[in-house]
Simulated scan of single mutants.
Amino acid sequence: MNETAQLNFALADVLNGFDPFHAGAGFYDTEIADSIYAVHRIDEKNKLAAAIRSIYEHSFDAPMPGGNPTELAEQLLTIKHNSSCSL
C-alpha cells in the first residue's frame, strides 16, 4: 500500500470517531472523504477546523451541535505531519 493510501486510512480512522450529529458510526462516508481532501489542501488548524465544520453543516443543512472541529483538525494535522508521505 502506498504512503498516501496509508495516510488516508489513518485520517479516516480518526474521522470515523467524529459524530457531531449523533448519527452513529458509518453514517459520514461523504463527509469523511471531503474532510480527508481538506486535510491534504489545508495546513493551518483553524482553517481546517472551519472547513470541516462547513463540510458537516452543509451535509446536514444545520449548525453542528456536537464535536470539536478544532481538536479534530489538530489530530488530523498531527497525523499528516508525522506521516512520511510527501504530499
Rank of each mutant, 00 (worst) to 15 (best):
M1T: 12
M1Q: 06
M1V: 13
A5S: 11
A5C: 03
F9R: 09
A10W: 02
L11G: 04
L11T: 01
A12M: 10
D13E: 12
V14D: 02
L15W: 08
L15C: 04
G17V: 05
F18D: 03
F18G: 03
D19Q: 02
D19T: 04
P20G: 04
F21V: 02
H22R: 13
G24N: 05
A25R: 12
A25I: 09
Y28D: 05
D29M: 02
D29K: 07
T30L: 09
A33K: 09
S35Y: 06
I36R: 09
A38Y: 05
V39L: 03
D43N: 15
D43L: 10
E44G: 01
K47G: 05
L48A: 03
A49Y: 12
A50L: 08
A51L: 00
A51K: 11
I52A: 01
I52L: 12
R53Y: 11
S54A: 15
I55K: 02
Y56S: 01
Y56H: 00
H58I: 01
H58S: 14
S59I: 04
S59Q: 14
D61P: 00
D61C: 07
A62P: 00
P63Q: 08
P65L: 03
N68Q: 10
P69C: 04
P69Q: 02
E71H: 12
Q75V: 09
L76T: 05
I79A: 10
I79D: 10
S83K: 02
